[in-house]
Simulated assay, not measured.
Amino acid sequence: MADLIERDVTYTAAGDNEATALQGMLIAPSGAANGPGVVLIHDAFGLGEQMIETARSLAASGISVLLADVWGDRALPGQEEIGQYIGAMKENPELWQARIAAAHDAAREQPEIDPARLANMGYCFGGASALEYLRLDGRVIATVAVHPGLDLVEFDWQPREARVLVTLGAIDPMATAEHRAQFDAALSDAGVDWELDLYSHTKHGYTSEGAKFAPENPVIGYHERNAKRTKDRYEAFFREIFPELRPTN
């Protein structure tokens, strides 16, 4: 893997009454300056090793990645705790979006990142967060949302220029056919250049290493082949957005 820069980036969100320390991380190619950037928003399991490895892979291609810490204090909730973490953000959307916006502001302050070439990307809860940031007029040129909870997002999009890639499992109860139809209509009406990749026989959280160990259930399930397909697709998508990127294989 290419030589990488890794450093902690601590930031705070406007209006966060708890003054929670958001302990993000920058992973960038060695020598990067004013280049393409991505804000990577973690899934329900927090800013853990899988997110860090994802960022390293993106950085090896030439992207500087700011990993967001939405939960604060770099918390890593267990399977039994994630509901309360997501619920707290859903019940306080102003705080939720303030923390997402703060991560993007922190990314723009990094010398490795060109603010005009900033995209965002998220998994699961993080995918919904990335979409909501863009919907609320967030300043990114592209968004990747991997198995986002479409039940967490709104569909009142205003016209904008952006590119969006969403990947979903066809039997994800958090992104039903009805949700997908609303997504289609909302982004099409807003003039967004969007793509939806739908994988058969695939549940929610299909890329998550944490989901590998969840008991068999109708909601969440790891799917190794489709996780690999998703990685291949978002890497190609970013090469379309940032033509200077180098192959990682």
Rank of each mutant, 00 (worst) to 15 (best):
S30D: 10
R180K: 11
F213N: 10
I27R: 04
E244A: 15
A32F: 03
A177R: 08
E80M: 13
D197K: 11
G83W: 02
Y206N: 09
H204M: 05
A170S: 12
Q79P: 01
A162N: 02
E49L: 10
W71I: 09
W96F: 14
Q79I: 15
F183N: 09
A28G: 02
I113W: 02
G205P: 06
R117I: 04
W71T: 08
M89Q: 14
A211F: 11
Q158C: 03
S188Q: 12
G149C: 08
E81Q: 15
D105Q: 12
C124Q: 06
A59F: 02
G126P: 08
N217E: 06
I41Q: 00
E94F: 07
R229E: 14
A142G: 10
A21L: 10
P247R: 14
D189P: 03
E178T: 13
E49D: 15
T176W: 09
E216C: 00
K90V: 14
M174F: 12
T143V: 14
N34S: 12
G15K: 08
V140M: 00
A19S: 14
S129T: 11
E53T: 12
A88D: 13
T143H: 05
Q50T: 09
W194T: 03
L196E: 12
A44C: 13
T176Y: 09
A190K: 07
Y222I: 04
M121V: 03
T54L: 10
R229K: 14
E195W: 00
D3N: 13
D193S: 13
I100K: 00
